[in-house]
Design a protein around this nucleic acid. Structure first.
Lengths: 185, 185
DNA sequence: AAATTGATTAGATGGATGTCTAATTGTAAG
DNA sequence: CTTACAATTAGACATCCATCTAATCAATTT
């Protein structure tokens, strides 16, 4: 979350042609606002605005000299950001506030009737898998069930218990041996 | 210039909350467009649009599977970009198409009259330095000049040759020894 | 003290872009 | 072969933001 805003601010700061060019110029040597305005053919307020955004992202820093504001690039911060991008866990962290089950819920909502039974078995593999995962959750892990017990439980979802049972095995959500069925983990 | 557009496309691609989140999700595992739409609470066309931008930047790649498009993150490209940011010459290269003398020219334009002489000597150090650099360019490198010769040349710019001469020494644009003046390099 | 100058802030405007709905394409299922 | 569905494309709309001018602030020069 702070990761989120940090990175976003960083990318936004550099996702603009003039600001990227400012970074390039400051990478060579520090400059005053007035100079940058000349070099980029922009008005001073505009340059000020860009520098403000770069400063918020921690990429530049101003030091007062006379009544000039001399801006310099903070290469340390830039390197820090680049290293964060290389770190293996930075990007996955960006998705941590995403509800990873939203898709599953949407599918289940589409295929279940108010009484909780399935309207039909999804034809698409992705959606079928979602339904089957839900079906598997009706069984206790590691407990052994007879085929009759399995059918009874599955019949709460849909009449076509045979297809459901076959799908559970095919997607390796349940296992079968010696006429017994079980769910692992 | 290709450096410019490359980097700009990269930053632009990641400078948007939803796209950054997409990158985060894909960093965990590949997903279909429909799934991403559910996870992000966005319409499919919108997700398609974002993925297109990420793909242009080389950050994601689609593979067809059934009639799904499964998108995956190109971590190699991401690492490549991060390393470019760490490289010492990437940023300075962004400024190579910037006219580094634009500021100097603007200053000279402001302080010279149509006949080529100076209206006045700038009070601000930065601008005085620009004028002095121009003054120094009137002398041949390494050649020895007497004070009288220096004054004669400087008088083409302004009557206050003494201040100009003093400035040239002070800013180390020219050197003096034994009553002789010269410009290095 | 008054005037000049560099920088920033405030406010306005035009262009870029994220988002949606509707239409089209291409692929799998009945 | 027809239907259904995931994805993309087209087009419209609203928001965001880069840019400018005018005004204000701060600091130096005369």
């Amino acid at each position: 979350m702070t990761t989120q805003t940090d990175l976003l601010e960083f990318f936004k700061a550099l996702a603009e042609p003039k600001r990227l060019k400012i970074a390039g110029i400051l990478a060579q040597s520090p400059h005053a606002v007035e100079e940058l305005a000349s070099l980029l053919q922009l008005s001073e307020p505009t340059v000020s605005h860009h520098l403000n955004i770069l400063a918020r992202a921690g990429l530049v820093r101003a030091r007062a000299e006379g009544h000039y504001s001399i801006y310099e690039l903070r290469t340390d911060r830039l390197e820090h950001m680049a290293e964060r991008l290389l770190a293996k866990d930075t990007l996955p962290a960006l998705a941590e506030d995403v509800d990873m089950h939203a898709y599953d819920r949407a599918v289940m909502r589409n295929f279940t009737r108010p009484d909780g039974r399935l309207k039909s078995l999804p034809a698409q593999r992705k959606k079928l898998e979602v339904v089957l995962r839900h079906a598997a959750s009706l069984f206790k892990p590691n407990k052994r069930y007879s085929e009759k017990e399995v059918n009874t439980t599955l019949s709460r979802l849909h009449d076509d218990t045979a297809s459901l049972r076959r799908g559970l095995i095919e997607f390796k959500l349940m296992h079968r041996a010696n006429g017994q069925y079980w769910r692992t983990e």
